[in-house]
């Protein structure tokens, strides 16, 4: 659908003009592909704060640490910056019929400048898809029978989303084959974490705190040798890897040890592997994602208590 109501920016990419002489000299080096410098099981640090939007009943801001190697203020790859506001529980419009449970509405929207590819103001399929995933993740924790005849709106704005490409090329580093890019998986994970923090901030009854976590199977670089050429990494940054074989995002309830949401993509086998302790690739992916999610739980708790 084309947007006829606004004056839109150019659809193609534009290149910012660089004036810094230092940067111009080392330009090629500074825009080279970022490399994962942290350990396979190490997560990027996150920043989480509640109560940023005073007019909402609950709100949260979520940000992921920048890649350490950036030069002259030029980041090599994009990170994740998400704001979430929760409105409600509020009465449903008069026209709506009676519901014994609270109606949950989730909206995910990329800011037009969130990625290297400019987004429109009208929600596209990827955003709707994320919203549905987010809704399934949250629905399980909210005690929606405690709020009959009311509605809850969870609105997420992604201020900066992770691209599969690093910023210079604008080309995808791996063949996503027209499918959703892997960056969407970590975006969803961030959305789940931010939304559940905002819901707790709004004081809505929940059975537990849901957190998002991502794990991925990536091709090892040629130098590393081992019996398997695949490696499990937590919290993958898609632009840092040559090829992501499979990726999994979960919505995890730590206190109950339950999953409300699993989204897995890629080429994985169900048969147990020798290399990874007798687990199948699917199991190890889910376990990895759960591990990442439970690490974020502590951050949420401390940000709520602040």
């Amino acid at each position: 659908m084309t947007d006829r109501r606004r004056v839109n920016g150019p659809t193609g990419g534009t290149t910012p003009v660089v004036f810094d002489p230092e940067l111009v000299k080392n330009f090629a080096a500074s825009v080279s592909k970022p490399i994962r410098t942290r350990a396979a099981r190490e997560l990027r640090k996150i920043f989480l704060q509640t109560g940023l939007t005073p007019s909402a009943s609950g709100s949260a801001y979520f940000e992921v640490e920048q890649h350490p190697s950036h030069s002259h203020g030029l980041a090599r790859s994009s990170t994740l910056k998400i704001t979430c506001t929760v409105h409600g529980p509020r009465p449903l419009p008069r026209s709506s019929s009676f519901t014994p449970n609270m109606l949950l509405t989730t909206t995910v929207k990329f800011a037009p400048f969130a990625a290297s590819q400019r987004r429109g103001y009208i929600r596209d399929n990827a955003e709707r898809d994320l919203a549905v995933h987010l809704e399934t993740a949250i629905r399980g924790v909210i005690m929606n029978d405690r709020w009959p005849k009311s509605g809850l709106d969870v609105v997420i704005t992604i201020l900066e989303g992770e691209d599969d490409s690093w910023w210079d090329t604008g080309l995808s580093t791996m063949s996503s084959g027209g499918q959703t890019p892997f960056g969407m998986m970590s975006i969803l994970s961030g959305c789940i974490t931010a939304a559940s923090t905002a819901i707790v901030d709004a004081g809505i009854d929940c059975v537990d705190i849901v957190t998002g976590g991502v794990a991925a199977l990536v091709k090892k670089s040629e130098l590393a040798t081992g019996n398997s050429n695949l490696e499990l990494v937590l919290d993958p940054c898609p632009s840092e890897h040559d090829e992501i074989v499979a990726c999994c995002v979960v919505g995890y309830l730590k206190a109950r040890d339950e999953l409300t949401e699993v989204w897995m993509r890629g080429d994985v086998s169900l048969t147990p592997q020798v290399g990874v302790g007798g687990q199948s690739e699917v199991d190890s992916l889910i376990n990895g994602a759960v591990q990442a999610a439970s690490a974020y739980h502590a951050v949420i708790v401390s940000s709520i208590k602040k």
Partner: peptide
Amino acid sequence: PKAIVTPGESITEDSQWMRGHGTF
């Protein structure tokens, strides 16, 4: 010093307490 509970956290396992608002 700060006893703040978060959703899903156990308050007590003793059955003699009754549950009020904000608990389940």
